Amino acid sequence: MQFKRLTALFFAGALAFSAAAADISIRIAPPRARVEHRTSSPGRNFVWISGYQRWDGHGYDWSPGRWEQRPRPNARWQAHKWKHQRDGWVLVEGHWR
């Protein structure tokens, strides 16, 4: 029983550390978003996901917008955004709410 608890604590700590280490801070501010022209919606249950500047390890690269089908009725898309923190810029990934 003691071994199982110790193992569980180890893995819980490793998960907490990896989640905190997942944020990569970029010292260079992201460029402005590009103006995109949306194509026609492919269907009633689709939502436009705006493009954004992503960091590829060497510089910013534009990830173009796209239409995406809602995973469930009334789902809303929370857009990607760059958040300024003390050490630089961190990307907050877009996600469904």
Rank of each mutant, 00 (worst) to 15 (best):
E36S: 03
I26N: 01
R54S: 10
V35L: 13
D56E: 11
R66S: 03
P42G: 05
A21D: 09
S25Y: 13
N74F: 09
S50M: 07
A19E: 13
G13T: 09
I49Y: 00
R76W: 00
A22C: 04
H58E: 15
S18G: 03
R66H: 02
P30H: 08
W55D: 05
P30Q: 04
P64T: 09
R66Y: 07
I28D: 01
Q78H: 10
R27F: 02
G43H: 12
A22W: 08
S41I: 07
W62H: 03
H58P: 08
I49W: 00
P42K: 01
G65R: 00
N74V: 04
W48M: 01
A19T: 15
A75N: 04
E36D: 08
P30E: 11
G59K: 14
A20E: 11
A22R: 10
A20K: 13
R27P: 02
A79H: 02
A16I: 14
W82P: 01
A33E: 07
G57F: 01
F17T: 15
R76P: 00
K81F: 05
W67I: 02
K81R: 15
A20H: 12
F46W: 15
A21C: 13
V47N: 03
V47R: 00
S63M: 11
G43I: 08
A22S: 15
R76T: 12
F10C: 13
S63D: 02
V35M: 12
P73W: 10
F17R: 09
P31A: 13
A16T: 15
F46S: 04
D23E: 14
D61A: 14
R38S: 02
R72N: 12
A19S: 14
A79N: 08
D61G: 09
S18D: 04
I49E: 01
Q78R: 07
E68N: 06
R44M: 11
H80A: 13
Q53H: 02
P64H: 03
A16N: 10
A33K: 08
G59T: 10
A79D: 08
A14Q: 12
R38N: 07
Q69P: 05
P73C: 09
R34S: 04
S18M: 12
I49R: 05
V35F: 09
Q53Y: 02
W55Y: 14
F46Y: 15
R44F: 14
P30S: 06
R76C: 00
A20S: 10
Y52V: 15
A79P: 04
T39M: 04
P31N: 10
H80Q: 10
A21N: 06
R66D: 02
G65Q: 00
A19H: 05
P31K: 08
A29Q: 13
W48T: 01
W67D: 02
D56M: 12
F10E: 04
I26C: 02
R72S: 06
A75Q: 01
R34W: 03
N74Q: 09
F17W: 15
A12K: 13
W82F: 08
H84A: 13
T39Y: 05
L15K: 07
S41F: 05
W62P: 01
Y52D: 01
Q78E: 02
D23L: 09
K81G: 10
H58G: 14
S18R: 10
H84Q: 14
R70G: 06
F17A: 15
L15D: 06
R44A: 14
H80N: 15
